[in-house]
Design a protein around this nucleic acid. Structure first.
Length: 859
RNA sequence: GCCCGCUUGAUGGAAUCGGUAGACAUAACGGACUUAAAAUCCGUGGCCUUAUGGCGUGGGGGUUCGAGUCCCCCAGCGGGCACCA
């Protein structure tokens, strides 16, 4: 063996070997238990970045580890290939989105190869290809038939930059999730998927996802936003009809002093037609905007309509109806009743418009009359628990009981009912864009909207489009959209909207189970075998987008008989971001790390020698130029060093700070590992057989640590604690190097521990592990070797170090036999001079002995 | 405003059940080797201190023989949701 490890030779050699031998192909039929490991597939943006390297390295370690443990592993890769960047590239560079996308895929695939990932490339899919998207067109038609898809005209979020509609989940703080442009409200006819049909189930099933991070479950829980309450009908005074209101506090109905409706409420719209003052009020409200800051500072504004309503529990009382800027048409019924005493916003509104405040809940132990007087005079609403007062038949009931009683009376009198309201709304999937899956529907002037018949699928995207005019190229295409109606045969037009690209990513994990199937999306037996995904890995940014859509889609597919499960991802892991320090030149411009050289605490620009100011570490991004090119890193340090550093320091769910020192350290360890074999401190035994060898001194300790490390690393990898696994492997390396040749059994211990180290580290740094394994004379590759087993005999220890405390402070340690009884340990401890010194002659009041751990002498 | 998470040496982090705080690294420093540098090897390393002493896991309080870990209050940082009735 050479004294230095040459990754430039070794890494491509092993990658070629794995490819030639189909080393990572999943077995079709297997007696082994299955394990489906999946990382969120990438969008083919053009080049891979460090976030990809981290994501796919984490998945690869799990896949290789499980394979070695004897699982039939499915570890596929594909491309989330539809999307807007391809269209933007088409507009800017006059290159067709299909060409741009396919070239990016081949570039990125080539960039993935040198990472040495254990991927089954035979299952690769790209969602922009008709052999993929044809199946989701069929799924959509099945959803339509099952009542899970529908078309309606509604107010939608319109992104003025992307010229398309966005789903609620894609609007962040009033801005488009990708463009950052302020979203406008528009009324459009759209296709929707009925995600609300599963609202309760999606919420309740979060409990069963025990291998998901809590915060993702909480985020989905909040997003679904279930609230229990009541629907209440208020009779309108002087005209037919009722005003329907949703409330979570039917117990406070006796405290109602007004009703308020949204300016988009049918009653408000009707009134606006004849009331110019209301129209003026509406435009004043619209001018405020919907950004976070605008909403926070916006004043509660109301417009007094001529309408009033009758109180449901007291026909003698009427309440005025306002149009108010804070009532949303999209939530509940677009109308509320206001109870100022017990809702701060209603209180603010009542004070502003001189409406009465009546306390109807008082804390249990306070004087009701005094509390009510104080509340009604003040400006703070009381929202705590208590007992109903001033509330007729509800008086004396606690809040929860009063809610039930109020709902009971409403229902009995046909004035309302208990109901559950969700924040979640149906998923709008229409996008006015070209580079997406065509929605397989046809608009016929005679027959209405009709589905494209199965035998005419797929509806292919036409390639001959141009991007010279704004808007959707499909809508501007001269011929594509003109078809004959499949029902009546007369001229009709295709739907020119395409699906939201989250449609494709909502079922790709199922396609990987049977990726070449032409007749169907996938074979039922294949998904029954492979799904759910055992370990899914990706960024937290999809906590409510992709992950919620996929959970819905799986249920919808089950409804339509495609598969038999509810939850697509059994285990979910959300990895942290890859961050880097930021650099700014004197002129304020950002600088790439490659343009900066650090000299001690100072940093200077290499080209000019000018000082550079150091900024905080942030997520790598092109805009701040704090990026490092994965290709460059692999060329300089090799894939194993890059992978090792990705896994070493930070726990995988936390952000990782990429540093030069860190990758250097990983590189040095790779070389150190090589030297353990190439320049061994102890001549290696012929084989790793240790049963017939007797060990002493450092050799014995090396053996013991090797076995301890097997147990610890196996546990760490199963729990995705890669950083601590690396630490333990480094400890074992240190121990191997410290093995003394003169100690009995040293050659066997050295070889055994080294081979153990290689097998344990192989999932993380597979190339060098294979190389050394081969150099040690193994004819079979390490990638085909079994995972090592710790020998319980070596894990057993006969003595243990106990901490000795006096009054809770550590004063000494002592060696005792494992399992030594309390009396023995106590007398050993009392005999220690440090204990006697600190006791200062006092007699112990109490001695606590925790076997094999600690003795605490209280005196 | 509501919900969630985090806060440990110069730095990333470890401490899995309440039981020896700082594993393993990175940076630094001292030494060996070298003409020299790099690499490598050996060593030092929480703070204060004359210490066999004291203090120490964001701050304050509590429970406990014992708290980084549990409870209460507060602060800072990060994230999610938000005129949601």
């Amino acid at each position: 063996m050479d004294e230095r490890y040459n990754f430039r030779e070794s890494e491509p050699k092993w990658q070629a070997y794995w490819a030639e031998t189909d080393a990572f192909a999943a077995e079709a039929a297997s007696a082994k238990p299955k394990c489906y490991v999946l990382e969120m597939f990438p969008y083919p943006s053009g080049r891979i970045h460090m976030g990809h390297v981290r994501n796919y390295t984490l998945g690869d370690v799990i896949a290789r580890f499980r394979r070695a443990q004897g699982y039939n592993v499915l570890h596929p890769m594909g491309w989330d290939a539809f999307g807007l960047p391809a269209e933007n590239a088409a507009i800017q560079n006059r290159v067709h989105p299909a060409k741009w996308t396919r070239e990016n895929i081949s570039t990125m695939k080539a960039q993935f190869q040198p990472l040495g990932l254990s991927i089954d490339w035979s299952r690769e899919v790209a969602t922009c290809e008709p052999d993929y998207y044809r199946h989701e067109q069929k799924m959509f038609l099945d959803f339509l038939a099952a009542g899970l898809a529908y078309r309606k005209t509604s107010m939608v979020n319109w992104d003025p930059v992307e010229h398309t509609v966005l789903a609620n989940e894609q609007v962040i703080d009033g801005k488009g999730w990708r463009s950052g442009a302020a979203v406008e409200r528009r009324e459009l006819a759209q296709w929707f998927l009925k995600i609300t049909a599963f609202a309760d189930d999606l919420l309740e099933a979060l409990e069963t996802l025990t291998e998901w991070p809590d915060r993702v479950r909480i985020m989905q829980h909040n997003w679904i936003g279930r609230s229990e309450g009541a629907r209440v009908f208020f009779d309108l005074v002087g005209r037919d009809g009722k005003l329907e209101v949703f409330t979570t506090r039917p117990d406070t109905l006796f405290g109602a002093s007004f009703c308020a409706i949204s300016m988009n409420h049918p009653l408000a719209k009707e009134l606006a037609e004849t009331d110019p003052a209301l129209r003026e009020f509406v435009s004043a409200c619209n001018a405020v905007g919907t950004s976070e800051a605008a909403i926070e500072t916006a004043e509660k504004m109301g417009y007094r309509t001529p309408f009033s309503v009758v109180h449901p529990f007291d026909p003698a009382r009427t309440l005025p109806v306002y149009v108010a800027n804070f009532v949303l048409m999209e939530y509940g019924t677009g109308a509320i009743f206001g109870c100022p005493a017990h809702d701060q916003r209603d209180m603010d509104f009542a004070r502003k418009y001189g409406l009465p405040v009546t306390a109807v809940v008082a804390p249990k132990d306070e004087d009701a009359a005094a509390f009510a007087a104080q509340l009604e005079a003040g400006a703070e609403a009381f929202t705590g628990d208590g007992v109903a007062i001033n509330s007729g038949f509800l008086n004396g009931l606690a809040v929860a009981e009063a809610k039930r009683a109020a709902i009971g009376r409403l229902a009995a009198e046909n004035r309302g009912s208990g109901t559950v309201q969700f924040r979640l709304r149906d998923w709008g999937v229409s996008r006015q864009r070209y580079w997406g899956c065509p929605i397989p529907m046809i608009h016929c002037p005679h027959c209405g909207v009709v589905p494209v018949p199965d035998d005419q699928l797929p509806v292919r995207l036409p390639e001959d489009v141009n991007f010279d005019q704004p808007g959707n190229p499909l809508a501007n295409h001269p011929t594509w959209k003109n078809v004959s109606c499949p029902v009546c045969g007369k001229p009709a037009q295709r739907e020119t909207d395409t699906f939201d690209t989250f449609f494709e990513s909502s079922w790709y994990f199922a396609r990987f189970c049977d990726p070449k199937n032409e007749g169907a999306a996938f074979d039922r037996a294949a998904v029954d075998y492979w799904l759910p995904v055992d370990q899914y890995i990706g960024g937290i940014e999809h906590a409510v987008l992709h992950l919620l859509y996929s959970r819905f889609f799986t249920r919808a597919l089950k409804t339509c008989g495609y598969l038999g499960i509810d939850e697509p991802f059994k285990g979910l892991f959300t990895q942290g971001m890859v961050c880097h320090e930021t650099y700014r030149a004197a002129n304020g411009g950002w600088l790439y790390p490659a343009e900066v050289e650090k000299r001690g605490e100072q940093a200077v620009e290499i080209a000019s020698g000018a000082p550079v100011s150091l900024g905080r570490s942030e997520k790598m991004s092109k805009s701040k130029k704090n990026t490092v090119d994965p290709g460059h890193i692999i060329e300089t340090y090799g894939a194993d060093a890059a992978r090792l550093f990705m896994l070493s320091d930070s726990p995988p769910d936390r952000d990782l700070e990429w540093t030069e020192a860190g990758i250097d350290g990983a590189w040095r360890y790779i070389q150190r590992l090589w030297r353990l074999a190439a320049v061994p401190a102890v001549p290696l035994a012929e084989s790793a057989e240790t049963a017939s060898v007797s060990f002493a001194g450092s050799a014995k300790e090396t053996m013991a640590m090797a076995h301890r490390t097997i147990a610890a690393v196996t546990d760490d990898l199963a729990r995705l604690r890669f950083n601590t696994a690396v630490a333990k492997l480094r400890e074992l390396s240190n121990q191997i190097a410290a093995t003394k040749p003169e100690d009995a059994g040293a050659p066997a211990a050295y070889r055994f521990a080294l081979e153990t180290l290689l097998r344990l580290i192989a999932p993380m740094t597979p190339h060098i592990a294979e190389e050394i394994w081969q150099a040690l004379g193994h004819p079979q590759p390490l990638s085909a070797a079994d995972w090592p087993q710790a020998d319980p005999a070596w894990l057993a220890v006969d003595t243990v170090t106990l901490a000795v405390q006096v009054n809770g402070k550590l004063r000494a340690t002592l060696e005792a036999a494992v399992g030594a009884d309390a009396k023995t340990v106590e007398s050993l401890a009392m005999a220690l001079s440090a204990v006697q010194t600190h006791l200062g002659g006092r007699t112990p009041k109490k001695v606590i002995v925790v076997p094999d751990k600690i003795v605490n002498i209280v005196g």
